[in-house]
Amino acid sequence: MKEIEELKLPDDIRYTDDHEWAKITGDTVLVGVSDYAQDQMGDVVFVELPAIGDTFAKGDEFGTLESVKAVSELYMPMSGEVIAVNTALADSPELINQQPYATWIVEIKPSDPSEYGQLHDAASYLQLLKG
């Protein structure tokens, strides 16, 4: 596993306590998991995705990541409606390990864009990881 110093934590996205990231693209938000999350999980073998049109409140479970011997729930960083899911993950769940920040899991239309501001920025997330 990586040391904390080895983790990539881009500045242009925000993070949750549960290691998801959120990225604003126009009026939608892309959601994925952080380098730390994928590293802890090890090889991702399956991603359980929600249906398009499902709505979630901030903090709701919207799917799971599975490795060979563990399951990790995915929680919504912001409230909103799922408008797209990354179908490439069905055949290539390893993208989450290979490119955690280029690999979004769901795209949502946020119902309260101000929630973005409540998420950790890179510095604050790094502090969280350092405990």
């Binding site: 399956f46 599975e66 490795s67 060979v68 011997k69 563990a70 399951v71």
Partner: peptide
Amino acid sequence: LTLATREQHIRREK
């Protein structure tokens, strides 16, 4: 043995 994440020793009550 595979797809073991369905099973009790990993997913317990779920």
